[in-house]
């Protein structure tokens, strides 16, 4: 019962909030949709912190896709053995995780100690930071406590469970043997997903890839009478 609740109901609630929250926010609050940069207020600490954090977290994200979303048979088909995968995961994951954590600590300290940044922080910022703190530390601990390649294998447990969630065939049984650190990490992550759309984290989805193929100068025409006049002219 408890496992049904923790590994099926909670994740779905969080994901529904995540998706619906983004749609709602995108429709209702374009003006509040911003990366909320505080570089104007403090720049020196931001430099190291932001660079470490963002680049670290990007690689961590790639790692998660490789470990959780891509199923094990895929690697086997490529001829990547368990040992090879594990070595690669640790070699990439630990530095990326450490960089993200270091960046996070610098940014967190900055937010607490630089008065200009502190007073311009919103509740959402603190909530996001709190979740991120738990997610990053628990995630990194899980990895560090699981260096042994014959230890716990998330690719046969967490992976199928998570893919089951996404394909609407959730099976909490997969989660039974998962160590505590991983469980904390996963639950905190779903907590983060649930608050995500209501914080500044929405800026992740604004990463301006379209810029690369846009013409330099953007002209907007006078639009015929329609609400579409708000849409971006490319």
């Amino acid at each position: 019962m408890a496992s049904q609740f923790l590994w099926v109901i909670v994740p779905y609630l969080a994901l529904v909030l995540f998706v619906a929250g983004h749609i709602w926010r995108y429709q209702r609050d374009q003006f509040g949709w911003t990366s909320k940069s505080s570089e104007l207020l403090e720049k020196r600490q931001l430099r190291l912190g932001s660079l470490l954090f963002h680049w670290g977290i990007l690689f961590v994200f790639v790692g998660h896709v490789m470990g959780i979303l891509i199923p094990e048979p895929f690697y086997e088909a490529l001829g990547v053995t368990e040992e090879m995968y594990h070595a690669l995961a640790l070699a990439g994951g630990i530095p990326a995780g450490l960089a993200a954590l270091a960046g996070f600590v610098i940014l967190f300290r900055r937010r607490l100690t630089v008065k200009r940044v502190r007073v311009t922080s919103s509740t959402g910022d603190w909530v996001a930071l709190g979740f991120l703190l738990v997610v990053i530390t628990s995630g990194l601990s899980s990895t560090l406590l699981n260096v042994n390649s014959h230890g716990f294998d998330y690719r046969t447990t967490i992976g199928p469970w998570f893919r089951g969630l996404l394909t609407f065939r959730p099976d909490p049984v997969y989660m039974e043997t998962v160590p505590l650190w991983f469980k904390i990490h996963i639950l905190a992550a779903f907590g983060l997903f649930a608050v995500w759309p209501f914080t500044r984290l929405v800026h992740v989805f604004s990463f301006p890839l379209r810029y690369l193929q846009r013409s330099y100068v953007v002209y907007r025409k006078r639009m015929p009478k329609s609400v579409d006049s708000l849409d971006r002219a490319q």
Partner: peptide, 26 residues
């Protein structure tokens, strides 16, 4: 502007920032 929030008006050339599209990339 990476988000395309800044634009030049076709009819009179005024350059504006769409406050709803700006994502603070600065």
């Amino acid at each position: 502007c990476p988000s395309g929030a800044m634009y030049k008006r076709d009819e009179d050339g005024i350059v504006l920032v769409d406050q709803n599209a700006c994502r603070a990339w600065r």
